[in-house]
Design a protein around this nucleic acid. Sequence first.
DNA 1: GCATTAATTGGTC
DNA 2: GACCAATTAATGC
Length: 237
Amino acid sequence: MTEVKPKCQTCENLNCLIRKNSMKEGMDVYLDQKVTISCKKSQNFIIEGSPVYGLFFVYKGKAKVAKTGINGREQIIRFVGNGEIIGHRGFGAQNFYQINAVTLENTVICNFSTKVLEEMMQHIPSLTYDFMLFYSDELNKSETKVKKFAQMTVREKVIDAILYINRKFGLVDGLLALQLSRKEIADFAGTTEEQVIRTLSALKKEKLLTSSGKKIGISDPEKLKSEIAVHNYFIDS
DNA sequence: GCATTAATTGGTC
DNA sequence: GACCAATTAATGC
């Protein structure tokens, strides 16, 4: 752990709420209290049910946020990349995390304690406002997701999941930059691994998707989008 | 190359 | 459309 703590003021993750406000008067004292940790792939750095110890930001890497169901069934809430927040539901009244967060690759994470965050919020209004907008947006996404889960067919859910991953992480050589197992796609889409596999091979046969090994490529994004357009696919849930 | 893990396929409820 | 079992492909050591 000889990592140099990245400075917020010069961080390249311009979408990070802390970064956005890092130049504000009085921020320095809070930013100095940041803790940065280096996680290997598949590290469970937030454990469901454990006491809240602040807010996390992805500095570099990727992670998934999930809730565990009864018989090992997992519901992936969302995927996060550079500059994004994790654990924000634990901020405020709640004392225990309601989610698990696991890295999908080697990932560097910044952490602010709840105490430091509270002080920041009290003293930097623009930061507080940005957070409010963020929470509002999250709630909107969450509501959209409820609708999707209730109304979409499996095929639509899988298409939606693929497009979401594409929107968020993009393609490399025509293949999704974030490589997930079929099980993970299923846990995110709200269906089973087998259904995902069957849907993927159907879409492949229809020439809407391509694949190279276990990696997935998109060959006809417009057609995919039009299939779920009726569900407002463009809302990034 | 072998052993473990993931993907796929077929069948049942 | 979920769950289970058997087969096959992919990947780690």
